[in-house]
Design a protein around this nucleic acid. Sequence first.
DNA 1: CTATTGTTCACCCATTTAGTGTACTTTAGG
DNA 2: CCTAAAGTACACTAAATGGGTGAACAATAG
Lengths: 134, 134
Amino acid sequence: MTINQATDYALRAVLYLARQPQGEVTEAQAISGQEVIPMRFLLKIMPSLIKAGIVKSFRGVGGGYALAKAPGEVSFLDVVEAVEGPIALNRCLNDYAFCSKKGAPNCQIHQALADVQAKLKAELQGHNFAELIN
Amino acid sequence: MTINQATDYALRAVLYLARQPQGEVTEAQAISGQEVIPMRFLLKIMPSLIKAGIVKSFRGVGGGYALAKAPGEVSFLDVVEAVEGPIALNRCLNDYAFCSKKGAPNCQIHQALADVQAKLKAELQGHNFAELIN
DNA sequence: CTATTGTTCACCCATTTAGTGTACTTTAGG
DNA sequence: CCTAAAGTACACTAAATGGGTGAACAATAG
């Protein structure tokens, strides 16, 4: 029921980038140092943010990262799902194979959890990084 | 971000008990068989529901389990927290030691997640087993 | 060409998850 | 009071996940 460490780091990294002047390229080392994220681990996480279209990267001398969108266009849900994949409050909500009842059609638990999950996703989607810049 | 298998089983077990005539004692074998929960694993999960005051147990011949409260008095949150302990969307929300910034006082990520977590808990608390009996 | 920056893929160790084994305790009924 | 039928406690395990590290590579500014 908790996000993992990589996601926590990713949220902090995105917020850090969101606080930089628009278009500014920030190197991994700066993010790592300021946000206290192990450098090598950060470098491993960033590509998933890039694939999700949240961040752009620049290689070579003077390279680094920058947001690919306006901070207000990036939600917590975007970042969480970029790193962890689709949210599933219960594994069976995304893949019936995980249900020992094999997705018995009238599983009330399933339906109630699906409802909670929808609310959770909406809530995560409702938070973006523009709000947090200060 | 997902509940674990034990919690899923616990929710199904509680729902099963909620559907029995009030006061009826149901043996583990029946729950296990009907809800397709590995017997030994179910027996291991039940004590946490008992400690949380959700279920009562009866030992010896003719023993089994029964709800300790009315179905409407048992929320999803009760069951989830009975099995998994307090919900923490981020580990640092319950224990600052897990924050690599050591709970830097103005962590905006922390604050936003705390807000989402509060909504999630409220949502889980809003679902009880009376609604699901049919 | 070279130093600097990010990328990729493989690996590693500790913890958690999802269970099983074995021995024990309680209790109804004969 | 014996015994079979229930739940309890504690230890153990195989597999997956979490949180990282290592080493070689690729791109790019100067």
